[in-house]
Simulated scan of single mutants.
Amino acid sequence: MPVKLAIVGVGKIARDQHLPVIAASPDFELAAAASRSTGVEGVKSFTSLAELLDACPEVEAVSLCTPPVGRAQDARLAISRGVHVLLEKPPAATLSEVDDLARRAQAAGVTLFASWHSRFAPAVPAAKAWLQGRTVRAARITWKEDVRVWHPGQEWIFAPGGMGVFDPGVNALSIVTEILPETFALRRGRLVFPSNRQAPIAAELAFEDARGAPIAAELDFLHTGDQRWDIEVETDGGRLVLSKGGSEMTVDGTAATAGAHGPHAEYAPLYAHFARLIAERRSDVDVAPFRHVADAFMIGERVEGPAFAF
């Protein structure tokens, strides 16, 4: 029988990705929704998760798609009711919250999935396999997009905890922490904060892996024109490029095979993974991408930039 699932936070990402994938999934059945501003047609809708769980005891799992600040409170409530939890990225507002949720889920015997959707992009598994056994000499992340296109009017993204440019930038970090054969750490960073905002709108980061190979990242939330989500890796066996957020892969300029493409190419396998975790009573709570973001805020130089308005 499909797992009866509720979705909390019916915003852009929920409508663009979660709801269509859930509707097509053989593993899940959408049973209810909770949102402060809007519901989901055809299912019972509530204004809070607490109301939802009180009224819908049949709900077995929830997908939390609210902004990260405050999400841990809903996750704790769901776990306390024995409900499995999928956390949109980033998983919470702080690393401490995620650690607490992982302990609670283990004690309650429920699944907690800190999801990183970009890891499920079509070419990411092939890139990871190709890099195994090769020595990385250098890598570069170029993640440039227009916040007015992808987060129109979403003021929370520049509030404390909203992460600013790291909201998309953590997608790149989720890929490189998955595919690179060596761990890496931040050495220095430069974060540009609009004069009227509390989260960065651009960042330059310099990492170094365990063998000393440099890994540079350039993140920009004001990039117009063609959007860029690219990762380039120079190795002793050739040059690998992941483009379009991990959808396409080339090696030395030649296209390599990748998985199925489409508007839901990342979220369909993500939900399939969630279903396997539930069936096996396991959790998946990798905070490596989130830790790199925290490191950037900890040691990165803060530079003030022009004021920003949507």
Rank of each mutant, 00 (worst) to 15 (best):
A206H: 12
D74V: 12
H261A: 06
A255S: 11
C56S: 10
H273K: 13
S63N: 04
A14V: 11
A272C: 12
D252Y: 08
Q132I: 04
L77H: 12
N196M: 09
V293S: 08
I7M: 03
T66H: 07
A123F: 07
A309K: 11
L277F: 09
G133I: 08
A32F: 11
V43R: 09
V285F: 12
P20E: 14
R188H: 08
G189I: 06
P200A: 13
R302C: 04
P200F: 09
P200M: 09
H261E: 06
K244Y: 10
V165I: 15
G70S: 15
A256F: 05
E41Q: 15
E182R: 07
L180Y: 09
Q227F: 08
I278C: 02
T135R: 12
L240E: 01
T135E: 11
V85T: 08
G253P: 01
V170I: 08
L240T: 05
E304G: 06
T257I: 09
M163L: 13
C65S: 07
Q198A: 15
G245K: 00
I13Q: 12
R187P: 10
P289G: 15
A206D: 12
W229D: 11
L30Y: 10
I215K: 05
P67K: 00
R148N: 09
V8Y: 01
R187C: 11
F113N: 02
D284Y: 00
R239K: 10
A55F: 07
D167L: 06
S118G: 01
D167V: 01
A138K: 03
R140L: 02
P160S: 07
A92E: 05
A185W: 14
P160K: 10
F308W: 15
L53Y: 09
I278Y: 01
P91L: 02
R103F: 02
L86T: 06
